[in-house]
């Protein structure tokens, strides 16, 4: 049902991310060979691919954490590699990034973790406003009672959700999720997948979700891409790819 909606949705809308012929090599090891893709406004694109194939590298290029060797990478119609550090910082407040390993600041409490980007970016000065935003963000991920805990006191799934809350508190227009459900039990995975969907519908944000988790892909995706040896080998909706004529594509959807 979701996918039907989305086929209708992604007709002629502007792209918020546009990548053309992107290439990245690490000391002779070509990770991304020729990547072209786009993400439209309020669209969820799921990227599948084997471990170590370069999915994380690709989305790190989008926020300028890794510099690509060649090709064009535009976010909101601006070339990322042409930005100076100030412009890049402004862009980064509009693009949320959820790390594969959570990357919670382990010397800070959950509250301070959420407060940090708000305070440092001078988005809000009023402490009441900041507090209410923190509470709202934690309620969104149903973890309000963890507000005064340290990251080391949280379970893996809780950390993931706090990571999501910390990213969402800046109300980004684009969200990049790096394996948001990996290592979680099916129930929590589904909760997070639903959360991703909810964020998309509520705030009209666009996202790229990297995932091995088929259920998550099914719930969240409008479109899917399969990354293999440096290029996108297949594109389509979840149903299209699952029922693909290509045996190789179908192999990604085998559950046993």
């Amino acid at each position: 049902m979701i996918t039907e909606n989305n086929i209708l949705n992604h007709s002629d809308q502007n792209s918020v991310i546009e990548i053309k012929h992107l290439k990245k090599t690490f000391n002779g090891n070509t990770v991304l060979k020729d990547i072209s893709m786009n993400v439209r406004k309020s669209e969820n694109v799921v990227i599948l691919g084997k471990s170590g194939i370069g999915k994380s590298v690709l989305i790190k290029c989008i926020v300028g954490l890794i510099q690509p060797d060649s090709g064009s990478l535009k976010v909101f119609d601006r070339e990322v590699s042409d930005m100076n550090s100030n412009e890049l910082n402004i862009l980064r407040t509009k693009v949320g990034f959820i790390f594969q390993g959570n990357a919670l600041y382990d010397s800070m409490t959950v509250r301070e973790n959420l407060e940090f980007p708000l305070r440092r970016n001078k988005i809000l000065r009023d402490s009441h406003e900041i507090e209410s935003l923190i509470v709202e963000a934690l309620e969104n991920v149903k973890l309000l009672d963890a507000i005064d805990k340290m990251p080391s006191e949280l379970s893996g799934g809780m950390k993931k959700r706090i990571g999501v809350a910390r990213t969402l508190i800046l109300k980004p227009e684009i969200i990049l999720y790096d394996e948001p459900t990996t290592g979680l039990d099916p129930l929590t995975s589904r909760e997070i997948s639903n959360l991703i969907l909810e964020i998309q519908t509520k705030s009209k944000a666009s996202s790229i979700v990297i995932s091995h988790d088929l259920n998550c892909a099914k719930i969240t995706s409008n479109r899917m891409l399969i990354l293999h040896s440096g290029v996108f080998k297949a594109k389509g909706t979840f149903d299209e790819l699952m029922n693909s004529e290509d045996e190789w594509v179908r192999s990604y959807f085998k559950t046993e």
Partner: peptide, 14 residues
């Protein structure tokens, strides 16, 4: 190593 510095960078917090 745990990408906390990267996380600060991508939230524009310098």
């Amino acid at each position: 190593v745990t990408e906390q510095i990267d996380a600060m960078e991508v939230s524009g917090t310098n």
